[in-house]
Design a protein around this nucleic acid. Structure first.
Lengths: 332, 332
DNA sequence: GAGAAAAACGTTTGCGCAAACGTTTTTATT
DNA sequence: AATAAAAACGTTTGCGCAAACGTTTTTCTC
């Protein structure tokens, strides 16, 4: 590898001058500067980030731990954050934890060793052990979509989202409303459920325990939910699925069982993934303001990095109801 | 930050001993080793990767440049590769190029500076300038889904995939077959088109120029294709969309125009994204063997890194036809 | 044209670590 | 008990770079 010393020799100057030309940290006479730049060009010199980091104690690297970047919503968040960070001069180290505490531990160790400047965490479920690990980090940490009191976070306001979705169903005339929730540890799912309850209570509707189906936020749980509901005596006329995937599964299974959506069963989702608008019927859903969410997360993180402080802050981004075709008044 | 010197002082040994304990590179008496490990634990010491890299000239880092990781197929590839690399002891630096040559150049510069051990590239379109940049890298490069003669690559055998898709349509009795292709520079699209042509020729069918719609491999181009086809005098009875997204768009638009799928129009996609099986009708498509593809790419890269050589190699992975519901015999 | 000030560059150190090279201590051998 | 051999650890250098500290050269000033 070409080093700064090679360049200095080639240009007939000292390493110091090369360094100052590269970094613009000291005045260098025009023709000297040009000689140096020519040498850099000729030798294809790129300063070693490792050496720079060792010296300057910053790495311009941000770690990102995510449960699994295959989930389209997660994938979008990752891509957006990467772009934002690039603009801010940081590179992204991507880590898929797969919800495995050993991998999480291992990644945090690695990232500590790499002396990352900051960390972003996007996980649907957080264990206590994990939170403790995150607390032990000497760099700023920003959580996405999970408000943990001890850490800075930026989240979709899922309570509001759950409320908006449910109220929409109620306004369309539904009084028998079920939901396809996520796992009980899933914090955003809990918040959506709270919004769901609030809207029901406000409308004086009771919550039928049989109509709540806790699943894994995937299409399978949507399918399972519909299968289960069809076996019960009374069937809800509308379903609030806590993400678009389970909504898809629900619609898919309903269609297979001869139920028409939305005539026989209305379904509302959550997330507004790209294909939501492409389905027939197009999916009515709640859209997370991903762009805002990511911008804010990036802003909080880079600011904490720049200021070298990190007072805990909890930000919420309001979601938006997207009305399409999968919800209609009940047929009665 | 805690350094190896701090640990040495805390444990009452030399830095050398600490280093050897950490790396297991020399025998250390059991109780000395325990003292050192206790000190490491107490101080929460993690060796600085920057310093190690500077010394050992390896970074255990692999760069990955991808057009955009939001695309679900790309997202899956990224996630899989990250997992494979993690197993092999590497971390992933994710870079979204957005097809912008300036960003590509900038990322390659950064990655060179970071002295990455290897690079993975997943781009749908490659410019000459970009290829030259990639050629100038001193670390091994593995391309995904784009066979460029000068670089090692692992690709889906899209010619075969295009052939399989088209032959399936023909076997179902279709003789009027159109396609929704990708942009002309898109190499995988070109290969799919070649397979398409080969299958048609083999069946003695002619290729109707009006029935070929070149788009952007997104849902919009699928919609546009169907709109265009419906305006032409004679309409094909089947469509081969070069990816699932454009198939989705096509089906969505066809439904809107009152065409039933598959009764009035059969549609076959490519990729087999997760939701393909959830649609009604479930999407008949060609599945890329992503797992194999990623495993092979990772194997080639890590091997090239380990061997410090990199003889160019071109690998192809055979895709698989997935028959579902969106293709049926024509109605005549 | 002597001295001071400014301009332009050079020498050297230390960041944290691995490992080559060295030293000391212990154990075995006679 | 003297010596050799083996065991266990220490000292030091250099990886590539930034920048503190220094030096030399040039330009003013009177």
């Amino acid at each position: 590898m070409v080093t700064i010393t090679d360049v200095a020799r080639e240009a007939g100057v000292s390493v110091s001058t090369v360094s100052h030309v590269v970094n613009g940290t000291r005045f260098v006479k025009a023709d000297t500067r040009e000689r140096v730049m020519a040498a850099i060009e000729r030798l294809d010199f790129t300063p070693s980030t490792s050496a720079q980091s060792l010296k300057k104690n910053v790495t311009h690297t941000v770690g990102m731990i995510v449960t699994s970047s295959t989930n389209p919503y997660f994938a979008e968040v990752v891509a957006r954050l990467e772009s934002e960070l690039y603009e801010a001069g940081f590179n992204l180290m991507l880590c898929n934890s797969g919800r495995d505490i050993d991998k999480q531990r291992s990644y945090i160790r690695t990232l500590k060793g790499r002396r990352i400047d900051g960390l972003l965490v996007l996980e649907s479920v957080l264990s206590d052990a994990y939170l403790e690990l995150l607390g032990s980090c000497s760099f700023p940490v920003v959580m996405l979509d999970s408000d943990t009191p001890s850490l800075t976070s930026v989240s979709d306001d899922s309570e509001l989202g759950g409320y908006l979705a449910t109220r929409h169903l109620i306004e369309q005339g539904h009084r028998a409303i079920g939901c396809i929730a996520g796992p009980v540890q899933h914090h955003q799912s809990i918040r959506r459920f709270r919004g769901f309850q609030r809207a029901l209570a406000e409308a004086g509707l009771s919550l039928e325990p049989d109509w709540v189906h806790a699943g894994g936020m995937d299409s399978e749980s949507g399918e399972a939910a519909v299968r289960q509901l069809c076996r019960s005596r009374r069937r809800p006329t509308a379903l609030f699925a806590f993400n678009d995937f389970s909504a898809l599964g629900a619609i898919s299974q309903a269609t297979r069982q001869g139920l028409r959506v939305p005539e026989d069963l209305s379904v509302i989702g959550y997330d507004d993934i790209e294909i939501a608008r492409l389905l027939r019927p197009a999916l009515t859903t709640v859209r997370q303001q991903t762009a805002t969410l990511c911008r804010e997360a990036c802003r909080l993180l880079t600011q904490a990095i720049a200021d070298k402080r990190s007072d805990v802050e909890q930000l919420h981004v309001a979601p938006e109801l997207i009305v399409r075709e999968s919800v209609a008044p009940p047929d009665e």
